[in-house]
Design a protein around this nucleic acid. Structure first.
Length: 370
DNA sequence: AAGGCGGGGTA
DNA sequence: TACCCAGCCTT
């Protein structure tokens, strides 16, 4: 009943999107992972580039890890790209390149949770599994005036149950996409377009005038500020990159050697000299800098400074750690970096600095200036 | 059950 | 500012 209204509405005017033009489970999967916690407007160009680079699961499985991350650069939540790559290899090696159809089999794959498993199973294989994402949670919580927090365990259980009941078992692919489209276009968080909603008459929230109070969400995360000073250490030809190999933020992406500071303190000469001495740098010139670059993430705010450090020595003569890489400045753009680093590279005009420095080694100023 | 993980758009 | 987005993973 609800589903037929919903599907009619969907068919009369949904957005045309590339992953809706295919039944290829590979492409459906890629689109679903890209769209995890990501708006369609933001994900769409990434999807097109990604499919052009890696048209099938074999191409993806064969690709270098850095190339996959490079394709993901700027999209955030980089573990998605790592899991995507890992799972492509699983598909090739364990499933001979054919995506499993079974929901529970899909769930075993890295980076595939309840939502994505249901999405792939239903959209690619038309299996009767109801998706529950942010859109669907909002639609259902309003439809039935459910006040249980949608991000609590019990809330999810209740919503999933309702989603299962609503599902059109004969047309799960259409039904699921219609639910999400309704949430995105009509049942919006801020200003829902109830007058245009095909489910208006049966919507408990609308009928009682509480649609703006739903859905209920718990938790307000505090964001902490972190100050970090990046060092762009260059001899005029090459520069030091640092590969982030911790389990934390920007895993497996590259940034620059850095000094972490407490929020209200700036870098001191002593800190800089000590850090540089670890590399074996005793004479240098600080040829460029900026401070107070704001980079806002969901759970923290980074306040970034940087200094361009021109060394007297060739970088190849320096002591670097195993996670650090000395790369030529022209190759810098080949490495996957977070947005903040991308911005710093642009701001610091690294290539201009190196061109200027080319002519003669004796022009090096050996004054430590701050 | 709670917290970590990006980046950009919107009000 | 705060919230939201075709969520998942670890602890």
């Amino acid at each position: 009943m609800i589903s037929s209204e919903l599907i009619s509405w969907y068919q009369s005017g949904h957005r045309k999107l590339p992953w809706r033009e295919t039944r290829d489970p590979y492409r459906i999967w890629i689109s679903e992972v890209i769209l995890q916690q990501t708006r369609i407007d933001q994900g769409l160009p990434y999807y097109n580039r990604f499919i052009a680079l890696f048209p099938d699961v074999f191409m993806l499985a064969r690709a270098r890890n850095s190339k996959v991350l490079k394709a993901w650069q700027g999209l955030g939540y980089y573990s998605r790209a790592l899991n995507l790559h890992k799972t492509s290899k699983t598909i090739v090696n364990k499933y001979k390149g054919v995506f499993p159809e079974d929901y529970h089999e899909l769930l075993k794959l890295d980076g595939i949770g309840p939502y994505t498993a249901a999405a792939v199973a239903s959209i690619a294989y038309n299996k009767p599994y109801a998706v529950l994402d942010g859109n669907v949670a909002r639609v259902i919580s309003r439809l039935f005036a459910i006040r249980v927090p949608v991000n609590s365990a019990t809330g999810k259980k209740i919503l999933q149950q309702k989603a299962n009941e609503l599902l059109d078992g004969k047309r799960p692919a259409l039904h699921n996409q219609a639910m999400m489209e309704l949430g995105a276009l009509i049942c919006k968080p801020q200003a829902p377009l109830c007058s245009q909603c095909p489910l208006q008459s049966g919507c408990k929230a609308f009928n009682t005038g509480i649609e703006l109070q739903l859905p209920v969400k718990q938790r307000n995360h505090v964001s902490q500020t972190i100050r970090i000073h990046y060092l762009l250490i260059t001899d005029g030809q090459k520069i030091i990159l640092s590969r982030r190999n911790s389990g934390g933020i920007w895993k497996h992406l590259f940034d620059f050697p850095a000094i972490e500071l407490t929020t209200d303190k700036k870098l001191t000469v002593q800190q800089l000299q000590r850090k540089l001495k670890n590399y074996g740098i005793t004479t240098f010139e600080r040829s460029g800098s900026a401070e107070g670059l704001k980079h806002i993430l969901t759970h923290r705010m980074l306040l970034a400074d940087y200094s361009v450090i021109k060394t007297g020595k060739k970088l190849s003569k320096l002591r670097t750690t195993s996670n650090e890489k000395i790369v030529s400045v022209e190759d810098l753009k080949k490495y996957p970096v977070p947005r903040l680093i991308e911005k710093i590279i642009e701001l610091a005009e690294i290539d201009r600095i190196t061109r200027k420095r080319k002519p003669k080694a004796q022009s090096i100023r050996q004054l430590p200036v701050l």
